[in-house]
Amino acid sequence: RSSNNLSAGLCYPHLGNSSCRRIVRPPSVYVLLYIILSSISVLTVTLNLLVIITISHFKKLHSPTNFLLLSLAVSDFCVGFIFIFEIILLDNCWYLSARWCMFFSVLCIIVPTASIGSVVLISIDRYIAVCDPLHYHTKVTVNRAKISVFLCWFCSALYTLVLVDHMKNPAGFNSCIGECVTFIHPVAIVLDLFLTLIFPVSTILILYVRVFVVAASQARAMHSHVAVVKLQGSVKVNKSELKAARVLGVVVVVFLCCLTPFYIVSFLYSTLSTFYFVKCLYYFNSFLNPMIYVFLYPWFRKCVKYILSLQILKSGSSEANIM
């Protein structure tokens, strides 16, 4: 009987002591977790696909800011597939090949890195739009936004290749069969901490503090009868930009709230279940982003109706006035 209990707690019972131990949970808990994670995965892929189709299809939305949002939506779309691998690892067992393990490891680096880079670019875009509105349209163009997005993904891919070069073969490093663990050199870990947390988060916070300081000063100026005449032109220029800054500010705050716990837990001693929770919270941000657009962007809701009613299949639908 004790032998049967031991086998039930192994990823590959027929391999005996060579197999990794699996996390044993009540069947009802497994079913609940599978339903929750599967639903989040499907919704993350679907909602971000709607964002991708919306910004790509409607020409009225082909602005520098929206192309940066498109980059974020593509990375969030990919996160939906990362959730599939997380579902496989629910019982702490890897049932796929070593190549799939390496693919999963690479995906877990390149996608979040591109996502962080996209949020930094969005913060820079809002900073220029609010703090230097007169030169915004000359400094920030569609072509420059596209080049920035390309460089963001290229640098993410290059950075991933550098880290992967420091990774040992997952199958060779695993302590038992049924594990997907990649070893990264300690120097690479320190570099990763600086490049994916300290530097980008500091940049985002500094830029957005400046944005909201300027926004607050303009709000005070609008209530001042003396300043209204002097600032009337600049307020008119900045009104839509300030609204966009507020919406994207919500995106940035939610992003930081989901990102920070993951890194805190990663570098502190924690249980496997705690680490798994904060990792899913980190990925859950990709589900939240399109939800923010739904509630705060009227044009996005209008575009979703166009897509779901298949009106985008009509000729000339890309020219529709959805603003």
Results as ranks from 00 to 15, higher is better:
Ser118Gly: 15
Val119Ser: 09
Val119Asp: 11
Leu121Val: 00
Leu121Phe: 01
Leu121Asp: 00
Ile122Ser: 13
Ser123Ala: 15
Asp125Glu: 12
Arg126Asp: 12
Arg126Asn: 15
Arg126Val: 09
Ile128Phe: 04
Ala129Ser: 14
Ala129Leu: 05
Val130Phe: 01
Cys131Arg: 14
Cys131Phe: 09
Cys131Pro: 04
Asp132Arg: 04
Asp132Leu: 03
Asp132Gly: 03
Asp132Gln: 05
Pro133Gly: 05
Leu134Asn: 07
His135Met: 02
His135Ser: 12
Tyr136Ser: 00
Tyr136Pro: 01
Tyr136Met: 01
Tyr136His: 02
Tyr136Ile: 00
His137Lys: 11
His137Ser: 14
His137Asn: 13
Thr138Gln: 08
Thr138Gly: 13
Lys139Pro: 04
Val140Lys: 13
Thr141Ala: 06
Thr141Val: 05
Thr141Asp: 08
Thr141Arg: 07
Val142Thr: 06
Val142Ile: 07
Val142Gln: 07
Lys146Val: 03
Lys146Gly: 05
Ser148Asn: 03
Val149Arg: 02
Val149Cys: 04
Cys152Gly: 14
Trp153Pro: 15
Phe154Asn: 06
Cys155Lys: 08
Cys155Tyr: 11
Ser156Met: 01
Ala157Asn: 06
Ala157Met: 11
Tyr159Leu: 02
Tyr159Val: 03
Thr160Asp: 05
Leu161Lys: 12
Leu161Ser: 14
Leu161Asn: 13
Leu161Thr: 07
Leu161Phe: 13
Val162Gln: 14
Val162Ala: 14
Val164Asn: 01
Asp165Lys: 14
Asp165Cys: 14
Asp165Thr: 12
Asp165Ala: 15
His166Ile: 09
Met167Thr: 06
Lys168Glu: 01
Lys168Tyr: 02
Asn169Val: 00
Pro170Leu: 00
Pro170Asp: 00
Gly172Glu: 03
Gly172Asn: 06
Asn174Gln: 08
Ser175Cys: 05
Ser175Ala: 12
Cys176Ala: 14
Cys176Glu: 02
Gly178Ala: 11
Gly178Thr: 04
Gly178Arg: 10
Glu179Cys: 10
Cys180Met: 04
Val181Ala: 07
Val181Phe: 02
Thr182Asn: 02
Thr182Ile: 01
His185Gln: 05
His185Asp: 08
Pro186Val: 07
Pro186Asn: 07
Pro186Arg: 04
Val187Asn: 09
Val187Pro: 05
Ala188Phe: 05
Ala188Asn: 09
Ile189Asp: 13
Leu191Tyr: 13
Asp192Met: 10
Leu193Val: 02
Leu193Met: 07
Leu193Trp: 05
Phe194Gln: 07
Phe194Lys: 05
Leu195Tyr: 00
Thr196Phe: 14
Thr196Glu: 08
Thr196Ile: 08
Thr196Leu: 13
Leu197Cys: 12
Leu197Pro: 04
Leu197Val: 14
Leu197Ala: 11
Phe199Ser: 01
Phe199Ala: 02
Pro200Cys: 08
Val201Asp: 03
Ser202Arg: 04
Thr203Glu: 10
Thr203Arg: 11
Leu205Cys: 12
Leu205Phe: 15
Leu205His: 05
Leu207Pro: 11
Leu207Gln: 09
Val209Trp: 09
Val209Thr: 15
Val209Arg: 15
Val209Asp: 12
Arg210Asn: 15
Arg210Val: 07
Val214Ser: 11
Val214Gln: 14
Val214Met: 07
Ala215Trp: 02
Ala215Ile: 08
Ser217Asp: 10
Ser217Ile: 06
